[in-house]
Amino acid sequence: MLYKVFKNSLLTLFAMAVIVPSSIVVLGSFKKDNEIYSDPLALPKSWSFNNFRTLITEGNVFTPFKNSVIVSVFSVAITLLFASLAAYGIARMVTITGRLLFLLFSLGLAIPGQVNIIPIYHLFVKLHLTNSLLGLILVNIALTLPISIFILTSFFKDIPKEMYEVAGIDGAGHFRIYRSIALPLSRPALGATGIFLFVICWNDLLYPLMLITQLDKKTLPLTLIDFRGEFATSYSMLFTAIMVASVPMIAMYIFMQRSFIAGLTAGAVKG
């Protein structure tokens, strides 16, 4: 009984901690500034889309959105491909090479990618990869490879040896086993890792902040930083900007949340 009360109140509390700030933002984007200051949770006096209109006419939101999608999608897809190949290799190679490779990537897990910001900045200046989406994608891949390989390796190791061996007896090569056994079995793990990576790439601020200045190459977090300067004195506009920047992601999340979360959990049980 006591446990139930404890459990339910804690669960409710954290849910409120998420819902309340989100509601403030949603409601605030329809309000005038002084309404936000006086009572942030009250319904707007009149539902007006003025803030949205101002934002869309004044700030170009489409380009940064497109850039963020391009950078995130390509980064995640390529990372997953490279990481699953490497993880499969590591998981199946019980030799010293496999151990060494794993150690090599574990090193990357221990070195936060952020420390490389100075050399990467200068390297990219030399390679003309600043103000380039390709540059951001490359950085994202390098930064997220270690964690992806870490997750996927442990997953591939969990696949019972017999399943690989059965295929091996049939005379299938490594690539074939990877494609026809490892990949299909690890779809949930790939999905989970993919979501992980997507969130990282989508949110990354540090590298874009340093590498991108050109207007037409900015990603959404950078645009939000700009909005912060532009609408520094107006929370209603800031909240609107947050809404506009997040709505596509939220829509995707609501739309795919079953495969996001259910896939993740159910898949893990089966795996």
Partner: peptide, 9 residues
């Protein structure tokens, strides 16, 4: 198989 990852990394 680990080559692309190793290269980028």
């Amino acid at each position: 198989m680990a080559f692309p990852a190793v290269a980028v990394y």
